[in-house]
Design a protein around this nucleic acid. Structure first.
Lengths: 115, 115
DNA sequence: TAGTCAATTCGGAAGTTTCCGAAATGAGGG
DNA sequence: CCCTCATTTCGGAAACTTCCGAATTGACTA
């Protein structure tokens, strides 16, 4: 992952509506939710939502698949995983025990990094 | 964690210089690095960096501690952990096996969520 | 092919973020 | 107390982001 891609992903999530969309999709799971249903549930105008979905899609945080007339949006968990790994890469110069000592929860993320 | 806090954190990371600062601090570990050394290593003007460090600090992604004349900045791993948990909260309506099926790496993040 | 429903594109006004030089603040040491 | 060095604050111009109505595209059905 390049820095630029990480910035696209963080920018995409750094917005009230887009973060709400992503979390809604995470809750709903891999099946996906149609654009217009997302718009209705979050009380956002369809044209506005379309722009936001485009940004999330370009950042590869969501996938879009057509089902008849509708387009279903679903979260891309693999991208979140890559993003977190990128953020914590080479933590403490590679000696992960050095950061685990003061933040027990961070150790959990280190395990992810190693897996 | 409130949505607003998550947006502050994602916005903070959604910038070339700030992301580079955070990753530098992750690599350096919990000891911390003085502001002016960060500025030098990333070739950023001190006044510009100061604004960026303030944004990272307000988002609670870094901590600042004084050591004599210098202020040492260090990453806050616990906040990253909270942020990822917030993002993936109630994944697949609570049935984590539903998302693990198609993205093996995502399962790693789910483990974090459960720990 | 015409009709319908779902989703996207476009324009442009309003708001927000970014940058850096110069000046100000703050902490120590002599 | 004064000096020095580290860092922050301020201003204001340039660049980017956000919003939504109207028009458009695209896909399925009859």
């Amino acid at each position: 992952m390049k820095q630029e891609d990480a910035i696209d992903a963080f920018s995409a999530l750094a917005h009230e509506t887009r973060l709400a969309v992503f979390r809604l999709l995470v809750r709903e799971g891999p099946e996906g939710v149609p654009a217009l249903e997302i718009a209705r549930r979050l009380a956002v105008k369809p044209s506005t939502l379309s722009g936001h979905l485009g940004i999330l899609k370009r950042a590869e945080l969501v996938t879009a698949t057509r089902r008849q007339k509708e387009i279903l949006y679903a979260p891309n968990f693999a991208s979140v995983d890559l993003l977190v790994r990128f953020l914590l890469q080479d933590c403490c110069g590679g000696d992960a025990t050095a950061c685990g000592s003061d933040a027990s929860t961070a150790a959990g993320l280190m395990v992810v990094k190693e897996s």
